[in-house]
Nucleic acid binder design. Structure first.
Length: 560
RNA sequence: GUGCCUGUAGCUCAGUUGGAUAGAGCAACAGCCUUCUAAGCUGUGGGUCACUGGUUCGACUCCAGUCAGGCACGCCA
């Protein structure tokens, strides 16, 4: 529908002899008396054409040739808004169209033939997922769903590192707990992993091996055992939320030699060196980010800053594999690269972008979704989340308390850049305060109506002729149809901005319109044509809710 | 100290390249169930859009500064 309006505006502009300098925007006015769709195109052109915006709008409107079956009338209002009013038959037909398209309704083909990669979670296997991680996990998953709905072929990737200092620390933490379990007295350092899960892993080792590993000083067994346990637990937690990755990318592979005898890490250094961005000093290899404008300010003076890629002990810093990893996203042929990560990783990303940029990669393909932290409060008191300290609020515990649907919903119902305050006490309450119930209730209600209607009127709702949509007439019916019609726009809007919460906002509107319709319009017991037309509308509403729920990854319950 | 994010109703938050009378849920108050699920619907009250200045026909939106909170600032990952 939007396309039709934009097309017609473009045609009219051409006739008037004006060029649309900016994208033509169609909005839904916030007051229904201003029509069903609105454009401010006349006002944006006022300055260039040196004309009164109202006059421009009038001229455009006089050129419009709309099908009266679709657009009833067009007005000019306010400072120069062009307001469109949809005709009844358009709304009626849209209901039939939704039912015909079924699960496909809301999908778009803008991404067909394009490959997208969404990297999310990417937590190293050092402990259970925290509540804070859950936000990025759900956000990333919803973004992947939305992109799929846009037609992209989407790869969901988890990038992880099972080497390095943190893993050694983890392994030794497990070893010490194991010795403790064997009855040895140990001293457990403060900077080791404190969580109870370490003891659980040690317990498992003890159950399998008894005290045969007491004298073991090599950490590799402990490391591998702990890693396998923790990874399994992470995957289990994610699965509870319906999250499954297609690909697990091990950072270690970037250290391994590929054809030509060099690792991908080394290749990055070679390429940067060719471009003149490498400097070797103090025994380390530096990326000359200072040449690219990186600086810090100290005592009012600006100091250019370079970045270490290989430490003086010969080990790469994490930035080097990060760059190499991103290059693989290009070489693997992804057209759209989405990275989802928490605010704590905000500093590494400009370095990666700088490197990709100087190496000639098109960084406009990369979209970054940075989610702010989740602060959890218990009894009004803030709890800091840290895996190492062991007082972490685990994502698993949260799912136990509030269920998978509410967990997913809570994490994406707010804009990602807000600091989400997750009140555990409130979330535990399984009451009607819970906003996810409002949506799901609408779905359950529809299912209930259809059940009763099929029983009492002995009919098959799915088999009702779509011709009955022509009976739809009441304001509440047409308002609901109008809202349903907007679904495809809502999906692409949410997908383009990587903001699943816009989907929730939209679905809330649908539920609201449905509840109003329900209040005013009875279905069962009405005359047959009216009943059938309303059943069609209810079915279309159910379809939109289902399609939307699927993108959010929440259930569509038949009863509540 | 520097960078990024945030500040909108009592609370949690929406607010579409700057546009029409700043919205929703919860909480409060008042109504609506002999009829398809009242986890719903209707209505009322509630605002210095953190503060100050600037840009312009027009600013919650853009710019500058101030205040408050979060995060990050390592040859840790």
């Amino acid at each position: 529908m939007k396309e039709i309006l934009i097309e017609e505006i473009k045609k009219a502009l051409a006739e008037v002899g004006a060029e649309p300098t900016r994208e033509i925007l169609i909005e839904k006015p916030n007051d229904e008396k201003f029509g069903d769709a609105s454009s401010n195109v006349a006002m944006t052109l006022a300055k260039e054409l040196k004309k009164n915006p109202r006059q421009i709008a009038q001229e455009l409107v006089s050129k419009f040739k709309f099908n009266p079956e679709q657009i009833e009338r067009v007005d000019v209002a306010g400072a120069g808004f062009i307001n469109f009013y949809f005709s009844k038959s358009l709304l009626q037909q849209s209901v039939a169209q939704i039912l015909a398209q079924g699960e496909q309704f809301g999908k778009s083909n803008v991404g067909v033939g394009k490959k997208a990669i969404v990297e999310y979670v990417s937590a190293n296997p050092t402990g259970p997922l925290t509540v804070g991680r859950g936000r990025g996990a759900v956000l990333g998953d919803c973004i992947a769903n939305l992109l799929e709905a846009q037609g992209y072929s989407v790869t969901r990737e988890y990038y992880f590192n099972n080497a390095g200092r943190q893993m050694r620390l983890l392994a030794d933490s497990v070893r010490l707990r194991y010795l403790e379990r064997c009855g040895k007295s140990i001293s457990f350092p403060d900077d080791y992993y404190q969580g109870d899960y370490i003891k659980d892993i040690a317990e498992k080792i003890f159950a399998q091996k008894g005290n045969t590993l007491e004298g073991e000083t090599d950490l590799s067994f402990f490391k591998e055992f702990a890693e396998a346990e923790i990874f399994a637990s992470i995957k289990r937690t994610l699965l509870r939320l319906g999250i499954q990755h297609d690909s697990f990318f091990n950072e270690k592979s970037l250290y391994e030699k590929v054809q030509g005898g060099k690792s991908r890490n080394e290749q990055v250094i070679d390429m940067l060196e060719q471009k003149g961005f490498i400097e070797r000093k103090d025994g380390a290899v530096w990326f000359k980010t200072s040449l690219l404008g990186k600086k810090k300010v100290e005592d009012g003076k600006e100091i250019p800053v370079d970045t270490v890629l290989v430490k003086s002990n010969g080990e790469p810093s994490y930035r080097l594999p990060d760059i190499a990893y991103h290059i693989t996203k290009y070489t693997r042929g992804f057209d759209l690269i989405v990275n989802v990560f928490g605010a704590d990783h905000i500093d590494e990303y400009p370095d990666v972008m700088r490197a990709l940029d100087v190496l000639g990669y098109d960084t406009s393909r990369i979209k970054v979704a940075i989610n702010q932290f989740v602060t959890t409060t218990i009894n009004g008191e803030q709890v800091k989340m840290s895996t190492r300290k062991g007082n972490a609020d685990t994502l698993d515990a949260l799912i136990d308390e509030v269920g998978a649907d509410a967990t997913r919903f809570f994490f994406v119902m707010r804009a990602k850049e807000t600091h989400l305050n997750f009140d555990l006490e409130l979330a535990k309450k399984q009451s009607s305060d819970n906003p996810v119930f409002y949506l799901q209730y609408a779905h359950a209600r529809i299912c209930g109506i259809i059940r009763v209607a099929e029983e009492k009127a002995t009919l098959n709702a799915e088999a009702i002729s779509p011709d009955f949509v022509k009976v739809l007439n009441a304001k509440e019916e047409l308002d609901l149809a109008k809202e349903l019609m907007r679904f495809p726009d809502a999906v692409s809007y949410a997908a383009n901005s990587l903001e699943p919460q816009k989907m929730i906002m939209y679905l809330n509107g649908v539920a609201e319109r449905f509840h109003k319709f329900y209040q005013e319009c009875r279905i069962v017991g009405e005359e047959e044509p009216v009943m059938k037309s309303r059943l069609l509308l209810a079915l279309a509403t159910r379809q939109v809710l289902r399609n939307g729920f699927k993108m959010l990854g929440i259930c569509a319950p038949e009863r509540m």
